[in-house]
């Protein structure tokens, strides 16, 4: 007997909720991007779990694609962070209030 799929799905749900909490609570842009990576990892874990429990390789292929998208997202996010830092000397989300009416 291996560990049941329920446990993996529960763990993925917990990690996803933690990542969501981090995005909502933290105000540092870089840490917020890291928390998005946490959420993507939770999704990956779900895909891999279903790939095993349905004996379907498609879930693993999807994990591969999510990895690619995550790296692209991190690259663009960090580029945006560098651009923001050049203008504001700060990457704190609280200081980005230029559109405030």
């Amino acid at each position: 007997m291996t560990v049941g799929a329920d446990w993996y799905l529960g763990l993925a749900a917990v990690v996803f909720a933690l990542g969501l909490l981090g995005v909502l609570v933290r105000r540092q842009t870089l840490v917020m991007i890291m928390c998005v990576e946490l959420m993507l990892n939770a999704a990956n874990l779900t895909f891999a779990t279903f790939a095993r429990s349905l004996t379907d390789i498609g879930g693993q292929v999807l994990v591969f694609f999510v990895l690619v998208v995550a790296s692209a997202e991190a690259v663009v996010g960090l580029g945006i962070a560098i651009t923001i830092f050049r203008h504001k000397a700060d990457v704190n989300a609280d200081s980005l209030d230029r559109m405030k009416g």
């Binding site: 690619v68 998208v69 690259v75 663009v76 580029g79 945006i80 651009t83």
Partner: peptide, 15 residues
């Protein structure tokens, strides 16, 4: 997508 992301990151981060 990867190529677009790389080009976008370069365009964003260059001075």
């Amino acid at each position: 997508l990867l190529i677009i992301a790389v080009v976008g990151a370069v365009a964003l981060a260059r001075r």
